[in-house]
Simulated assay, not measured.
Amino acid sequence: MKEFKTLFFFLRLPISISLVGHGLVRIPKLQTFTEGMVKSMEKSAIPEVLITPFGYILPFLEAIVGIALLIGFKPKLTIYAAISLMTILIFGSSSVENWTAIEAQLLHCLYLFVLLWFYVKNSREENQPLV
């Protein structure tokens, strides 16, 4: 069991740091980040009334999910939250045809899926429902 905990920590470490980093570097410049997001989404069908609050919330969500994943808080739930967040980002990126961003977001999703698979296959909760 100790080996699993160590392996799982090091497997989730890179994606956790990525999420925490995305969030924490944006928080000090929250207004600038949000304005940039609104500008980049101008040609999207998504209304600005949704983009603006999401821009203010996103860095905090990224940081919280990243920290939760880093400390191992409810791993399955946290991984599901991270995949859900990435899915929202993919939807936004696809609405403005930002294929480069989608590639990075899909890579995050794939990594998170592998992390979830590893957790489910190797944890003591293997026979428990996934949520």
Rank of each mutant, 00 (worst) to 15 (best):
V131W: 14
E42V: 01
L11Y: 12
S93W: 03
H108G: 01
K121F: 01
F60T: 11
S18N: 06
F118V: 06
P28K: 12
L30I: 05
K2E: 05
A82R: 03
T34Q: 03
N122V: 00
A101F: 04
S44H: 10
R124C: 01
R26I: 00
L112A: 11
P28C: 04
V96D: 06
V25L: 02
H22P: 10
L107K: 12
L30Y: 07
G55T: 11
A81H: 15
V65I: 11
T32P: 01
I88F: 14
F10L: 08
Y111E: 10
F91Q: 13
T52A: 08
L107F: 13
Y56L: 04
E125N: 05
F10R: 08
H22G: 10
I102S: 01
A63M: 09
T87Q: 10
K76G: 06
V49G: 12
F10Y: 13
N127C: 04
V38A: 04
S40D: 05
P14W: 12
A82K: 07
V131H: 14
G23L: 04
F113E: 10
F91M: 09
L58G: 15
E3P: 03
E48G: 09
E42Y: 08
A81I: 09
E103V: 13
I88E: 14
L85V: 05
Y56E: 11
E48Q: 11
M37P: 00
A81R: 15
W117I: 03
A104Y: 06
I90A: 06
K43A: 00
E103H: 13
R12T: 01
F33A: 09
M41S: 07
V38S: 02
F118I: 01
R124L: 00
L110R: 15
S95K: 14
H22E: 11
E42N: 03
G66N: 07
E125M: 03
K76I: 07
H22T: 14
T78M: 02
I67A: 13
L11Q: 10
Y119D: 02
F60V: 09
P47M: 00
T6L: 01
T87A: 03
I90G: 09
L58N: 15
T32W: 01
S40P: 00
L50D: 13
K39M: 01
V49D: 15
S44Q: 02
I17H: 14
V20F: 03
G36F: 01
A45I: 04
M1Y: 03
M86T: 07
S40G: 03
F118D: 06
V25S: 09
L106K: 06
P129F: 08
F60W: 13
S18C: 02
L85D: 13
F33Y: 10
F33C: 13
T32N: 07
G55A: 04
L61T: 07
S93N: 10
T78H: 04
P28N: 09
S94W: 05
I46G: 14
L24C: 04
R124A: 04
M86Y: 08
L85T: 10
K43M: 00
V96G: 04
V49E: 15
V25G: 01
L107Q: 14
I15V: 10
L106F: 07
K76L: 08
I102W: 02
I88V: 15
L106M: 09
I51E: 12
F73I: 04
V20L: 05
V120E: 09
E103W: 10
H22C: 06
